[in-house]
């Protein structure tokens, strides 16, 4: 049997390639590659928004487990009320609230607004968390349910007033996605049920669609927009869609949200059902949310 030259050549070439390979191996450029696990891992997407609120409405973001967030919200008077009112700063309305992260995807909060002497409380839960890698999800889905209770004197004392008439309820599904390090967007189909309404023409149930977006201008400053379109349930000639635009400024444990909006309310029922000022006609107020977090229960 005669040896085919190409048949002999092939293993020789292979041999020399292996030999070269080995000599390179000895000098060793990438040792880590030998042990590194290259399979992609599931990773949750974090920091879609700087705060757990876009501005007025809930965001897709959560507090860490064991973290207490003290929230002080202010909404001032109308800017176009003139210099004599210091462009609205004379009239300050506020809500003081406390939120707490029970689990990574479960948080609760309570608050009280001076407007209507109203108490509110909410539960927020994230059944689906945006992630990358295997079994990833392109969006986060967050459920929010809250209740409000007015504690002021009854508007009409001539009728029989029930305690339940003080209550209203809010439910929402937030569908949100962090598209890039800068840009996040969320849509919120939401509804408010009021046990008691002022006029017979008013509906008890209000349906709305919220749109919240943030664009990071720098590592610590972001531009945010929070708009809620009232789909049905409110008289169109009287009530307006709440719109707020502003900036999130983060410094260590604080987040300042400075914004301009047409709504006075600082809980969902209030800003969805009681906004009468027209943003387009200049009925705008300045406001801020101040958030300070404390780690009550540390990880270790």
């Amino acid at each position: 049997m005669t040896m085919n030259p190409t048949f002999l050549g092939r293993p020789l070439i292979l041999c020399s390639i292996l030999a070269i390979g080995h000599s390179l191996h000895a000098q060793q450029q990438d040792l880590l590659g030998l042990v590194e696990d290259k399979t992609p891992k599931k990773e949750y997407v974090t920091n879609a928004f700087k705060s757990t609120r876009v501005i007025d409405g809930q965001s897709m973001e959560f507090l860490g487990k064991g973290v207490l967030d003290t929230r002080i919200l202010h909404r001032f008077g109308l800017i176009n009320s003139g210099a004599n009112n210091l462009y609205g700063l004379d009239q300050a309305n506020m809500r003081l609230g406390f939120d707490y992260g029970l689990l990574e995807s479960l948080m609760i909060g309570i608050g009280r607004s001076n407007v209507n002497k109203e108490l509110d409380g909410f539960i927020k839960f994230r059944p689906l968390w945006q992630s990358t890698g295997p079994h990833s999800s392109p969006v986060s889905i967050v459920l929010v349910t809250s209740m409000t209770l007015t504690t002021g004197p009854w508007a009409d004392t001539s009728r029989k007033n029930f305690f339940s008439s003080r209550m209203s309820f809010y439910n929402a599904i937030i569908i949100g996605r962090k598209f890039s390090e800068q840009f996040s967007l969320q849509l919120t189909p939401e509804m408010v049920h009021r046990n008691l309404v002022t006029y017979t023409a008013d509906h008890n149930d209000i349906y709305a669609l919220g749109i919240g977006a943030r664009y990071k201008l720098s590592k610590r400053i972001a531009f945010v927009v929070d708009y809620h379109h009232i789909v049905t349930g409110l008289r169109r000639n009287t009530y307006q869609d709440p719109l707020a635009v502003g900036f999130d400024i983060e410094t260590g444990g604080h987040v300042f949200q400075l914004h301009f909006s047409n709504s006075l309310g600082m809980n969902e029922r209030a800003f969805l059902t009681e906004t009468t000022d027209n943003f387009g006609k200049g009925a705008i107020r300045f406001g801020f949310n101040l958030s300070r977090v404390f780690t009550l229960h540390s990880k270790k």
Binding site: N47, K65, S298
Partner: peptide
Amino acid sequence: KGFEFEKALMQEHFNEN
């Protein structure tokens, strides 16, 4: 990302900022 801090916010800032 695998560095664990006692405070969640500190960990967030470490990674993000």
